[in-house]
């Protein structure tokens, strides 16, 4: 019974995702105001030719700062997991 409920929920979720995928129209974006502004004004406000880099490093700079922090935190976590242990210190998990 429990498996049936979980299976039905997953099936409905998958059908919903597929419905969203099928319902969208390709090649005609829905909301274009912000991107129109970036394409037409980005070059004169930041001076860079590559609009994607302008957005990443200038318009959405805080986003990139958080992203760099996430990468740094991941490296710190990996270093914490694989830190050096003493030679005689064995794992105590049978």
């Amino acid at each position: 019974m429990k498996n049936l409920v979980i299976g039905a929920t997953v099936l409905i979720l998958c059908l919903g995702i597929l419905y969203v995928g099928v319902g969208l129209e390709f090649g005609v974006p829905l909301f274009t105001d912000m991107d129109e502004y970036f394409v037409s004004h980005g070059q004169e406000q930041t001076g860079g030719n590559n609009i994607v880099t302008d957005i990443v490093f200038d318009f959405r700079g805080f986003d990139t700062l958080g992203e760099a922090t996430v990468l740094f935190t991941a490296v710190l976590g990996a270093g914490l997991v694989f830190r050096k242990r003493g030679e005689d210190e064995e794992y105590e998990y049978e």
């Binding site: 930041t46 001076g47 860079g48 880099t53 302008d54 490093f57 200038d58 990139t64 760099a68 990468l71």
Partner: peptide, 18 residues
């Protein structure tokens, strides 16, 4: 592009190390 190449180099160094 002012500050953007400097930030590119900084982020490049960071991703290389990470």
């Amino acid at each position: 592009a002012g500050v953007i190449p400097v930030m590119n180099i900084a982020v490049g160094i960071e991703v290389l190390g990470a």
